[in-house]
Design a protein around this nucleic acid. Structure first.
Lengths: 253, 253
DNA sequence: GCCGCTCTGTACGGTTTCATACGATGGCCG
DNA sequence: CGGCCATCGTATGAAACCGTACAGAGCGGC
């Protein structure tokens, strides 16, 4: 197993680890390809691996009575997939799958648990991330109950944009309608609304972010609170040569 | 400070603690009255106390852009108020307040933190509870996005019923409309719907649960998943003489 | 017993979203 | 380059919910 070099990683949690904490997990990290649609965690099944994405985006969904998924959280290179392990819980009723292709590392659950037991600072860092996820899920609950579709869509696009290189998002209306738990033509309309004011450009299976700032205005308070909590609580190590920080200014187009 | 006797407590978390873990927190528990409307945690302010309710019900809410609260979780004698402390975070953007009068204990944050550092089993138990809260919040997100008002109302009444003695809930339509983030006349209509089929009886400022089973059917999958996770993960010590377990059969009227 | 306040019932038009259906379009593959 | 399938645009009527407004009903204080 080739241990990755901590400073060359993009995953912000792994990067934020103290070197001695990274030494506890580094040897057990296995690189994995994370293609679109790959299911990382099955509902109510033991979680065998926890995933640290380097690129791409994962969705955590709850399944409703019609077995339709409803998104409750989104994870990219800022986080990990399989948070319940950090809380000492071996399985969850939710499903996690990759929605935008990428790659990353996984660690077998027993190794992670041993590392968590060995280092309180490691555990503490990951718990602070778990806290941020709870705030994100709360924001999802608020957004779902309180916002019109175009706002919820704006929020979702922003969260996706935060976790991707560049301004191109590979997304279909159908997929968005699943994530936002609305009907597909509704998404089409909401996209036209945002497109009409020039915030985004929509092409077949692709959405381009054109004006992030106005998207944030559109999303209102449903976007921003979890992101600020992340910044407050997860240390942001200096970015090494030309790499990507979540808050880097982005070249538009 | 009179240390309460663990076996005489109703709070399920305190009861579930191993005696040696209870010894770490017991000496610092201060009894508190928890009247309706009392704010336990202010958004973005340092959390000074964590609360263990013995009776009554607390709401955790996020504040939207209009400063209107939207409920994201509900806590009673099964849990604690101030979960972010357990995750090592000193404040949160959410607000917690008491919505149905009761009482309980509070512990000053530094004492709890010291106890969490001293005992991993204590920390682990409380983390498992935090996990259940995340599942509850996820269910709220799903319910908000996916369900009609009467279903959401049924879910909310059930969660409240779980945390109260008897079948009487002291609730106004106005308050429910805040919690569910809908307009007040909508609540009136939804209540009539449930009342028309005999699941509840509504009187001024009071709702009586008449048929819990059919309420659960009405709520569908939005109710039950977090509750099952609680049962799975939090040990349920034997109930001492005539006390109350969450799952006791209830005398209906 | 009356006043006044809170709470509940009801009404109205308007907006958003629903469910469903079907035609158009883009782009991949043979 | 032509066909096919995923994707997207659009239509239509129904339902849920919104914001607002106002009248009636319960209940405590005096």
């Amino acid at each position: 197993m080739v241990q990755p070099d901590q400073s060359s990683l993009r995953n912000q949690l792994l990067r934020a680890l103290a070197p001695e904490d990274f030494a506890l997990v580094g040897p057990y990290l296995e690189p994995v390809a994370l293609p679109k649609g790959k299911v990382l965690i099955e509902p109510n099944q033991p979680i065998e691996y926890v995933y640290f994405a380097e690129s791409g985006v994962a969705s955590v969904v709850a399944l409703n009575s019609d077995h339709r998924p409803v998104e409750i959280a989104i994870v990219g290179w800022e986080g990990l997939v399989g948070p319940s392990i950090v809380l000492g819980v071996d399985r969850t009723p939710h499903q996690s799958f990759f929605q935008m292709e990428g790659g990353g590392y996984r660690i077998a659950t027993p190794h992670l648990i041993r590392a968590l037991e060995a280092s309180r600072t490691l555990h503490d860092l990951l718990l602070r991330y778990i806290y941020v996820v709870t705030v994100q899920t709360a924001a999802t609950a608020m957004s779902n109950g309180d916002s019109v579709l175009s706002e919820r869509l704006a929020r979702w696009l922003l969260m996706c944009h935060d976790r991707v290189d560049g301004n191109e998002l590979a997304l279909t209306h159908e997929f968005l309608s699943l994530m936002l738990a609305v009907r597909r033509p509704g998404v089409t309309e909401a996209i036209h609304l945002l497109e009409g004011t020039g915030m985004i450009r929509a092409r077949r299976s692709h959405i381009t972010i054109l004006d992030r700032e106005r998207l944030e205005e559109t999303a209102g308070d449903s976007y921003g609170v979890p992101e600020a909590e992340y910044e407050r609580l997860i240390p942001n190590p200096e970015v090494s040569g030309g790499s990507h920080s979540r808050r880097d200014p982005r070249e538009i187009e």
